[in-house]
Simulated scan of single mutants.
Amino acid sequence: MPTLRIAQDPAADELLGRDPLALLIGMLLDQQFPMERAFGAPRLLADRLGVDRLSAADLAAADPDELVRTFQGPPALHRYPGSMAARTQELCRLLLDRYEGRADGLWDGVPDGGTLLKRLNELPGFGAQKARIFLALLGKQYGVTPPGWREAAGDYGLEGARRSVADITGPESLVEVRAFKQAQKQAAKAAKAPAKAPAK
């Protein structure tokens, strides 16, 4: 079982390490929300549901309004608990339809990194960037290394990178990843800013 230190909380990280669905939901919630809180949310969700492992079948079948209340907390599992509860249900339904309700069905026996990336891109709430980051996380920390996984993950798959959650192995790397993301935001902002006219 992989030892993860993404949520920076032993109980939350322990669940991520042994429950692929918890890891997948953590990645889904990692959007407009602090990274460690997003990946800590599956533990809170499991605790509130009174289970020690999340079930795609149970989440897919849950009453939508009740699930929203579960997401609302307090504390809330996400900045947008309503839309994220709905997206989590959608994700679980897709897992039921295509992978017998198993998150690890996404990667078990997958022939190559390109195929896995294609599957991740089809998940609700997973855009191209999120799919690559999750692929890198699986390869770097979860032992899922089909041929060509690094290439499929692009820059996120690079050895020694500090670009994303895939590279977080403790408090220090969390700080480094956060600094990288801030620098990226600043660069994007600077690129959008109109050029100042030269002084006469």
Results as ranks from 00 to 15, higher is better:
131 A>D: 05
186 Q>A: 15
168 I>R: 03
74 P>H: 15
147 P>K: 09
93 R>N: 05
59 L>M: 09
113 G>S: 04
21 L>Y: 05
69 R>I: 12
25 I>Q: 02
154 G>I: 12
100 E>R: 10
14 E>K: 09
186 Q>M: 13
174 L>D: 00
70 T>G: 07
199 A>C: 05
16 L>P: 01
44 L>Y: 04
22 A>T: 05
188 A>F: 06
17 G>N: 01
94 L>I: 14
165 V>C: 05
117 L>K: 08
1 M>Y: 14
180 F>P: 01
91 L>C: 07
2 P>T: 11
44 L>H: 07
9 D>H: 11
61 A>H: 10
58 D>T: 03
68 V>H: 09
102 R>W: 04
132 R>S: 09
21 L>S: 05
47 D>Y: 13
55 S>A: 02
166 A>D: 05
127 G>H: 10
161 A>I: 08
14 E>H: 06
52 D>P: 01
159 E>A: 14
14 E>W: 02
16 L>F: 00
28 L>I: 08
60 A>H: 10
185 K>T: 13
66 E>D: 15
123 L>N: 03
72 Q>N: 09
28 L>P: 06
15 L>D: 01
32 Q>P: 06
49 L>I: 12
90 E>L: 13
73 G>T: 11
76 A>W: 09
32 Q>E: 10
151 E>R: 14
13 D>L: 03
156 Y>S: 05
53 R>E: 00
84 M>Q: 15
44 L>K: 08
60 A>S: 10
